[in-house]
Design a protein around this nucleic acid. Structure first.
Lengths: 178, 178
DNA sequence: GCATGTGAATAGGTTCACAGCC
DNA sequence: GGCTGTGAACCTATTCACATGC
């Protein structure tokens, strides 16, 4: 496969593909291109997605449920090993094979089950507190659905998903266009 | 409010705030700073979020449900005026005040209800087809949850939300760090 | 001959620093 | 005196183009 083909596939340019890859090493052969399967495995290792990751879900609301049942997570190696919620009526009930835990036992469960990633699907007002506790408990990364900027140490990556901002980005582009 | 304060609030720098704002006009007063309420309204107009937008949801699965019930959407002016699904057993049933429509009547309903934005919460294999039909029907923007790059004309903005990629971004950063 | 990998050129975006206005 | 708005300096990222190696 040539960088040209990869670029068409990924909606980018051949030069971009080559520069990006060259940042991490030399994966192709001159005059030939890239061996797709080989490249794929190299990139999987590079990205750290050649293994499974232990994830905890905080917030057993509708967004939490949608995420928990999202088949692509499990199939891509993200294993949900704990679910937390603050609502006493939910605690102890089960989703699939996971029983919902109280936030009171958060640190304990996180450490016991070696959770590496936390998904925050909770309201903005409790997100910072849970994030801080997660970092303190040794979590390595946070996927944050709450509409606030979390304050965590720089060595803990945070990815924000803000659905309102996505819609607003569309509104902006449409408004500009006219 | 000074650019310094705004920067602290938005986790950026004062210079960045001033440059970004200057791109769209002159909103502050030298020596004084910005009048917060006034700035807020100017930006709301600029972003096109000073009015409500008519949205259609395609895909009445768990992600669709989570989005439909997400209070922030309605409160920020995004009104869901139609829901579509391909599953015959769902068609005709209602979520709140919206009854679920068949994809067969997609164009008809989109035009009749003046839908401006479409949220695609459907599997990758049908996303491109629905996106093309949405554009053809006159939709102005697409929020895409399907894990594919949609091919639409450049005048129709698309925002992608790919939850697996968000987790993979965390995996990458954590892997790099060690 | 062909396509990569990479310096050089270019474009885009951020930071600096200060003139100008309140 | 204080803070904006903005040109200049700087830095990062993309594109170009070609020497290099298959």
């Amino acid at each position: 496969m040539s960088s040209e083909e990869l670029a068409a596939w990924g909606q980018t340019t051949a030069a971009q593909v080559r520069k990006d890859l060259s940042h991490f090493g030399s994966f192709g052969k001159r005059g030939l291109g890239y061996q797709a399967g080989e490249l794929r495995e190299s990139l999987r290792t590079l990205l750290g997605i050649d293994r499974s990751w232990k994830v905890a879900l905080v917030g057993a609301g509708r967004i939490g449920l949608a995420l928990y049942e999202y088949p692509a997570f499990r199939s891509r190696g993200y294993d949900c090993v704990a679910i937390f919620d603050s609502d006493p009526s939910k605690i102890g009930t089960a989703w699939g094979d996971q029983s919902i835990c109280a936030l009171e036992v958060f640190e304990e469960v996180i450490k016991e089950r070696d959770v590496e990633l936390v998904i925050l699907a909770i309201p903005a007002d409790s997100a910072q507190e849970v994030a801080s506790r997660a970092v303190e408990a040794g979590v390595n990364g946070i996927l944050n659905f709450a509409p606030i900027r979390l304050n965590v140490p720089p060595e803990v990556p945070v990815e924000d998903v803000n659905l309102v901002i996505e819609l607003e980005a569309l509104s902006f582009q449409i408004t500009q266009r006219t």
